[in-house]
């Protein structure tokens, strides 16, 4: 029975700790994400939410704790509890199964949109170029940018870049998608298209962990919302619970600040969080 339960879990995190120098960013975080679940992580800048995400695909190496993705640990745990990286080969294979979307898109500037999407399948998965092109076009079509296949990133808007970045991650056929403030660097009018693409992905059953300041997206798409404060998961619940009836005073205070349009910017992107309607 334990086995059946753990098979339904996409991500299991136990007592995860991470510090940068003397600054403790994550303090004994526990988190379980079920297959197909959409989890939105909110919290003030510096609360550790991006670091949590980056530990899951080992962009950051945890100090200690255990992370299991898709039933397999992503690293070893020493006897004293400290975290040890697997050899690079294994880490790279894990990363192919975990898609990541960055705040600043990080599209490969010397490659066209299509090449951005196909470079992973071709060079990492050794897929035949023709097959990869077909897959790449499918992914670009999915994010509504098939007509931009031959455009270089410098010719794309921010929203288009981010959708190509999503297509690039999807082309690796990941079992989990991580979104690290995917709309924070976008002009407000471009946010909607990206959120729409993410919502579509959620509707298709993709397991997603999303760090965002888009409370509208959280409310509409999330199965569960986590509130992070000072490296601790202070509160979690359904969007309904978190947004209408938060238990913790810190959560209430945070929501008051980000949802009031006249409040000074308190979010990671340096501007107030916005509520963007999803078409």
């Amino acid at each position: 029975m334990m086995h059946a339960e753990s098979q339904q879990n996409m991500v299991e995190i136990r007592t995860l700790r991470k510090s940068f120098g003397s600054n403790v960013v994550l303090r004994d975080v526990d988190l379980t994400v079920k297959k197909g679940e959409v989890v939105v992580v909110i919290g003030a800048s510096g609360s550790g939410k991006s670091t949590l995400l980056r530990c899951i695909n080992l962009m950051e190496v945890p100090d200690s704790g255990r992370i299991v993705v898709g039933g397999e640990p992503i690293g070893q745990q020493n006897k004293d509890g400290s975290f040890r990286m697997f050899p690079e080969k294994i880490v790279n294979r894990k990363r192919t199964q975990i898609g990541m979307v960055f705040q600043h898109f990080n599209l490969f500037n010397h490659l066209t949109a299509l090449e951005n999407v196909t470079v992973g399948p071709i060079s990492v998965k050794k897929m035949a170029p023709a097959e990869a092109r077909e897959l790449g076009m499918q992914m670009l079509t999915k994010v509504g940018l098939a007509d931009k296949a031959d455009a270089y990133p410098s010719r794309l808007s921010g929203g288009q870049k981010q959708r190509v970045a999503i297509a690039r991650a999807l082309a690796m056929q990941p079992m989990l998608m991580l979104f690290d403030e995917p709309t924070s660097a976008l002009d407000p009018e471009l946010v909607g298209d990206v959120l729409q693409t993410m919502k579509q992905l959620a509707d298709e059953g993709m397991t997603m962990i999303v760090v965002t300041h888009e409370m509208g997206f959280a409310r509409e798409v999330a199965d569960r919302v986590l509130f992070f404060d000072a490296g601790v998961m202070l509160e979690e619940g359904t969007p309904e619970e978190i947004f209408t009836n938060p238990r913790e005073e810190r959560t209430r205070e945070f929501l008051r600040r980000v949802l009031s349009p006249s409040a000074p910017g308190t979010t990671g992107s340096g501007r107030p969080a916005t509520v963007t309607a999803i078409r």
Partner: peptide, 18 residues
């Protein structure tokens, strides 16, 4: 070259050399 380029490359599973 911005560090995000290397991060994105590693995130799709490329080795350092690749």
């Amino acid at each position: 070259v911005p560090s995000g380029q290397a991060e994105a490359a590693r995130s799709v599973g490329m080795s350092y050399a690749m």
